[in-house]
Simulated scan of single mutants.
Amino acid sequence: MGGFLEKPETEKKVEQGSGNGLRYCLSSMQGWRLEMEDAHSAVCSLMEPFKDWAYFGVFDGHAKFSMLRFPEGIKEGFLQLDEDLRKVNNDKPGGSTATCAFISPDKIYLANCGDSRAVISRGGATYISTIDHKPFSNIERDRIQKAGGSVMIKRVNGTLAVSRALGDFDFKRDQSRSQVDQMVSPEPDVTVCDRLESDEFIIIACDGIWDVMSSSEVSEFIGSRLLVTKDIPMIVNSVMDICLHRGSRDNMTLLLILLPGAPTLDEDAIKADRNLDKTIAQITREVIEKHEINDFEVLMRLMKRMAINIPNLPPGGGIYAKYYIIEQVFHEIFPDAPAEIYDFCNV
């Protein structure tokens, strides 16, 4: 299950790129975990004869499992990769989820193995969201039990929180059963859809994001931020911060792929967002003065209660999306307050 640090490691590693009419931005953060076990791959143009195809993937390792990057086939590729990994990791514990997107000129292919997730936003709404492979779902539980395992505390044999993954060969020892019928299966679900002009973006993220935000919340938040800023890393990093404030205790990686139909800047939305910032700053000053607050944690608790009465907060993000405004005002009033003033667990 892994241990935790005394305070979260909040430094973010950001990567950006573009090609084939696509732009992407990835941010990853270790968070509360003792180690960073996430990995990713982003290739905007594959080798010939697939130069007009793109490939993106997020891999969430567990039990110190290091995931190699791969641009191979989809379902057959997953199974073959698992066999290749067995040759070098058969006696080693741990494994990795894998969630990938292959983008051709006319189609999008999503492949998911584990509890990372891919989401397509189309026409301002969540169009497709892959299904997490959790041991307690009926389909997964049935396979686990038929393979001689059990589901306890929502985990395979009480230890593993995902029911499909690459690696995890301790759960793949039954030679009488096929590769995909083991307690933990390497078989991905593959979703295929035609590309439309209304396709906006694709999100691929590990469960450190989805543990505390829904597919629609992340999609709506990103869509709303694309209307007010061109700073894509800031948008992606904001999702990480919101998840941390909401209590995510896991590593976090989010890969955002912008398609040609992605939202663009809107002057009315920009104006409304600036006015919202001014409103939140004013409310923060009034709360500090009225309640004679000098403790940031107390301030945030009061601001959370008041958020229901603050209109037009960013959808999906709420008051946490404007945390930096509250923090800025607090430091203006209390310049000697320590830089790290936020107790992520208790607010």
Rank of each mutant, 00 (worst) to 15 (best):
E200P: 10
E200L: 14
F201D: 00
F201M: 04
I203R: 00
I203L: 11
I204T: 04
I204L: 10
I204A: 03
I204Y: 01
I204S: 02
I204G: 01
A205H: 12
C206D: 06
D207R: 05
D207E: 12
D207W: 11
I209S: 01
D211R: 07
V212I: 15
S214Y: 03
S214V: 12
S214G: 07
S216H: 14
E217G: 09
E220S: 11
F221D: 08
I222Q: 02
S224R: 05
S224P: 04
R225C: 14
R225M: 10
L226I: 15
L226D: 01
L227K: 15
L227R: 15
V228H: 00
T229F: 08
K230T: 07
K230D: 09
D231G: 13
V236M: 10
N237D: 05
V239L: 10
V239T: 05
V239M: 01
M240W: 06
M240F: 08
D241Q: 07
I242F: 14
C243W: 03
L244N: 00
H245F: 14
H245C: 11
R246I: 12
G247Y: 03
G247F: 06
G247V: 13
S248K: 01
S248M: 05
N251W: 12
N251F: 05
N251V: 12
M252Q: 10
T253I: 15
L254C: 04
L254T: 05
L255C: 06
L256W: 03
L256F: 11
I257S: 03
I257L: 08
I257K: 09
I257P: 02
L258D: 00
L258N: 00
P260A: 10
G261R: 00
G261Y: 01
A262F: 11
P263E: 05
P263H: 04
T264K: 08
T264A: 06
L265T: 05
L265M: 13
D266C: 15
D268E: 10
A269D: 02
I270S: 07
K271E: 13
K271C: 05
K271H: 10
A272L: 08
D273N: 14
N275Q: 11
L276E: 04
I280D: 05
A281H: 03
A281R: 06
A281M: 13
Q282D: 09
Q282R: 15
I283W: 04
I283E: 04
I283Q: 02
I283M: 04
T284K: 03
R285S: 10
R285C: 12
R285D: 07
E286F: 09
E286K: 11
V287N: 05
I288V: 10
E289M: 15
E289D: 04
K290A: 13
E292W: 08
E292H: 06
E292I: 08
I293H: 01
I293N: 03
I293M: 04
N294Y: 12
D295L: 15
D295A: 14
D295C: 13
F296R: 02
F296L: 07
F296C: 13
E297G: 07
L299A: 14
L299V: 11
M300H: 01
M300V: 07
